[in-house]
Design a protein around this nucleic acid. Structure first.
Lengths: 244, 244
DNA sequence: TTTGTATGTGTGTAAGATACACTTATAAAA
DNA sequence: TTTTATAAGTGTATCTTACACACATACAAA
């Protein structure tokens, strides 16, 4: 039997070269799914859209890729314009291209997801007209295919949480074991056993216990911990995979 | 302390609306990493580029997104044009956007990876000037950032192989345990213990053992197995995760 | 009939995952 | 000063899963 592979003819190549310049150019958008955590709940940052189409509906923050930048840079720019934040955990998620995903315009969108520690960045009381933190479980319907993006991002976040100590991106520099556990319970959306959780985390040996207590949560107070980037890097170098 | 979030001014919005139409349009390419397996080795299908820049160097197969299709459709089209194959496992990988990744033209590329059973599709003797199967370990340097794409694809393939019985996409309908093990050894790039492998696969309970032997590999002959999609679907519904 | 070759098969051991309940430190209230 | 209420902190036994490991068998070819 003969191979099935055929090459495009010379004519087709020529046509393709033509495309190579103008015909099928498209707008590339970047949309950011921004996750935050505020001691108890996993949150997502949304904005009220102030342009048509779908003006005044809730949306992810986004922007268009400029010819002078790559996608990562565009995502950082978009994020900073809205939040003022730099040095945030940011990861490319997926690219969305349904033909009529944006009814106003043929747009392809590359989604990024970001992790932010709400508390240490003075976001507590965000109440600007257009931007607002939503409890992940109580967030509104979004424009276009943004709901799909968020679902995909949650899946990715769960996976990351199980294989990398990514949760630490979402916590303040110093945190209690309970906060860490709350975070993981939010991400994984299930209850964990306190003792087993602590045992596992301690086995990882990537935290420093501080001689300092947080008294806000109980009368006894609870010890604060800090993520130790150096120990973590050593673990990574040893080829360790994290599973919580 | 006050929130840091600021919205773009009306002027900026106006500017953005302007972009919304023309200024920053880009060409979107689709590149496919095509993995194949031929009883013993994991392979990748490459083509010799027949246009400038970098004419005559090895490359992934690719094409440009048309305004009338979404990315998945474009990937399917590109794949079919080269291989004649439809109904192939295809999954979006990542989007590559370095500014000068293609020195000829500002292009952003969405990579897809595909899994093909070489044998059942009569690819054995591919020898057309432009398309060729390479042993994954002995494949040549590629144009642009295609090497990076391939590396990312291999990582993704490893992960998929560990969590989904994806390997079956790469095998003919009927296969021996040894072939399946060879495949997983190729993907994971390590030797596996025969007995443990068989035990694990049997535990999954998603294969049907046929009363039919493949006599080509040994004098004793080895039983053929078949992937049972129904059992597999049941497992999935029960929420099972596969780990080999 | 012999020989060579890849197939096929089970168990003991170590490591890891899970289930589970009481004491303690402290602030606030009495 | 004493009592009380609250979340923090801590260890072990059991089950499950992962891994290491070696020999007999069926058959074709010589």
């Amino acid at each position: 039997m003969k191979p099935l592979i055929k090459l495009a003819s010379k004519e087709e190549d020529a046509k393709e070269l033509q495309y190579y310049s103008k015909e099928d150019q498209v707008l590339l958008a970047v949309d950011c799914i921004i996750f935050g955590f505020d001691k108890k709940n996993l949150k997502i940052l949304l904005v009220k859209r102030d342009i048509e189409p779908q003006k005044n509906r809730w949306s992810l923050i986004g922007g268009f890729l400029k010819k002078s930048e790559n996608l990562d840079t565009a995502a950082i720019r978009v994020l900073q314009r809205l939040t003022g934040l730099q040095h945030v955990y940011l990861e490319q998620l997926n690219t969305y291209s349904k033909i009529d995903r944006d009814p106003g315009q043929r747009t392809i969108s590359v989604a990024y997801f970001a992790l932010i520690d709400v508390a240490s960045h003075s976001f507590d009381g965000i109440q600007i007209d257009a931007a607002q933190w939503f409890n992940l479980k109580k967030s509104p319907q979004l424009v276009f295919d943004h709901n799909e993006m968020v679902e995909d991002a949650i899946r990715r976040l769960k996976r990351r949480a199980l294989t990398k100590p990514i949760g630490f991106e979402l916590l303040p520099e110093k945190f209690t074991m309970r906060q860490l556990q709350n975070l993981y319970e939010s991400i994984l959306d299930k209850k964990l056993d306190k003792r087993n959780f602590i045992n596992k985390v301690n086995t990882l040996n990537i935290l420093d216990k501080l001689y300092e207590k947080d008294m806000s949560s109980s009368r006894k107070g609870s010890f604060l911990y800090q993520f130790d980037a150096i120990k973590y890097q050593q673990k990574l170098d040893e080829g360790l995979i994290f599973k919580l």
